[in-house]
């Protein structure tokens, strides 16, 4: 890249200004950010920019099912720019609405799982001994517990609802982060700076969360951004099984897996466009996230 190679400290900058200007240096990252903003906008403004409310089943007419992109609806009121699915939902509106659910569920569950996992993993690594063994065996159990079984149990005990999807997703994912955080923290625990901090008699929580945590973050962030895609797919699986969002209010992940069976049949748009929408969101998050991580990392300062 030939963009902006001037010295960074041409004039005094606040840290925030530095981060912004560093970030903007990378055109790919800016492009990623645009994609993220677009996805979030579409999700937030879904009711305003959709031509149809795809969750209102009384508004669906089976006659219009599987219309290819660009078809007029049979009552002549709207045009299905991206076609309709097997239930005659306008794909474009369905994608807008579905994006809301998927992004919400994906972000919240991954952040919560990350938070829980990091705490458990760091505590286990720092304390060692029995605490470590105890926490890690719980992690082993959670890792071996299949998501579908968790979902089915939650479904029959708690009933359905979006909050139950979140619970299921967090339950399934936190252990993965805990294991990863512990791996990273085990290395940090024996480094000089931790020993120094211990000698200074800093309280353990301070050592763990102020000193060790930042050094463990790079690999955890990589896993978290990637897990986001996995969480969205998992949400689709769980909803498909009946736990979670009602089938008449599909998330993006559900739209993709519903469309899966149409892939060979020629009605490509039913799976293709939701797939593209998801890919846009994920790619945007990762492009922006990659660079943001580099910019935020003090060690990468030039």
């Amino acid at each position: 890249m030939t963009v902006a190679l001037e010295p960074v400290a041409a004039k005094p900058q606040t840290p925030f200004q530095r981060i912004v200007s560093d970030f903007c240096e990378n055109r790919l990252a800016v492009f990623g950010l645009v994609l993220v903003v677009l996805s979030i906008f579409v999700a937030a403004a879904a009711p305003l920019i959709s031509t149809q409310n795809p969750f209102d089943i009384a508004g669906l007419d089976l006659l219009d099912a599987k219309s290819p992109p660009g078809t007029m609806s049979s009552d002549g009121k709207i045009t299905y720019w991206l076609g309709t699915d097997g239930q005659a939902r306008d794909m474009m509106s369905a994608i807008f609405y579905g994006m809301r659910i998927s992004l919400f569920v994906g972000f919240v569950s991954v952040l919560a799982a990350l938070a829980i996992g990091v705490v458990v993993g760091l505590v286990a690594a720092y304390a060692g001994g029995r605490t470590d063994a105890f926490l890690m065996r719980i992690v082993d159990i959670m890792l071996s517990f299949p998501a579908i079984l968790v979902a089915l149990i939650l479904l029959s005990v708690l009933g359905k609802g979006i909050d139950k999807v979140l619970i299921a997703l967090i339950l399934v994912q936190w252990a993965y982060f805990a294991r990863a955080a512990r791996g990273a923290a085990l290395v940090e625990r024996n480094k000089e700076y931790v020993e120094a901090a211990t000698c200074l008699a800093l309280p353990p929580w301070r050592i763990v969360f102020r000193h060790m945590l930042p050094n463990c973050m790079p690999s955890l962030i990589v896993i978290a951004t990637i897990t986001l895609a996995r969480a969205i797919a998992l949400e689709a699986t769980l909803s498909f099984l009946g736990v979670g969002v009602p089938v008449t209010q599909p998330s993006l992940g559900m739209l993709i897996s519903n469309g899966f069976e149409f892939l060979l049949s020629g009605s490509y748009w039913i799976s293709f466009f939701p797939g593209v929408a998801l890919a846009i969101a994920i790619i945007g998050i990762n492009l922006a996230g990659d660079h943001l991580r580099d910019v935020l990392n003090p060690r990468n300062l030039r």
Partner: peptide, 8 residues
């Protein structure tokens, strides 16, 4: 590699 669903 990870934004494409496995089954796809």
């Amino acid at each position: 590699g990870f934004s494409l669903p496995n089954f796809w």
